[in-house]
Amino acid sequence: MLEGRVFKFGDNIDTDLIIPARYLNTSDPAELARHCMENVDPTFASRVRPGDIIVAGTNFGCGSSREHAPVAIKAAGVACVVARSFARIFYRNAFNVGLPILECAETDNIPAGSRLQVDLTNGRIRVVDSGQEYQARPVPPFMQEIVAAEGLIPYVKARLGK
């Protein structure tokens, strides 16, 4: 069970907002984390704490295929992203780098700054103060296998008997 403070963002949060291309001359997670969300909220990187949760609208992570986006979010300490929908490349990338994400139709109702509990195994989401619960779409079986192997690379290694 994850629990953290909610940082809220709107619809169509694209990869240039998550990590501007001007910082892509490195793939160092710590450095990417320092610029995470800079184009939409320059104070985010300094305010976010380990375990915090991003809650957003539709099409989160649209735009470029840069894996630096979920890497930056994860390295910033974010435990999980809950959005109404995700852009498909971001969706794959997040699982592949070990950043859990959940699709939930009711993210509009989750208040900014509230404490949120997220159960990844069954997709249950609970706002601690109000006790209000929401159900996220369960992770497809194929992705669960990758998550169970703790990412795509260990999964492939296991398959190749390495």
């Binding site: 990338n93 780098v97 690379i153 492939v156």
Partner: peptide, 27 residues
């Protein structure tokens, strides 16, 4: 597959082409 979102360009040739992330590509 390409670790670049505009890999979809090659669909103009009647191919299936799509962008993926770096880890997908590595696998």
């Amino acid at each position: 597959i390409g670790a670049d979102s505009h890999t979809c360009t090659y669909g103009a040739l009647g191919a299936f082409a799509t962008g993926v992330g770096s880890t997908d590509l590595a696998a």
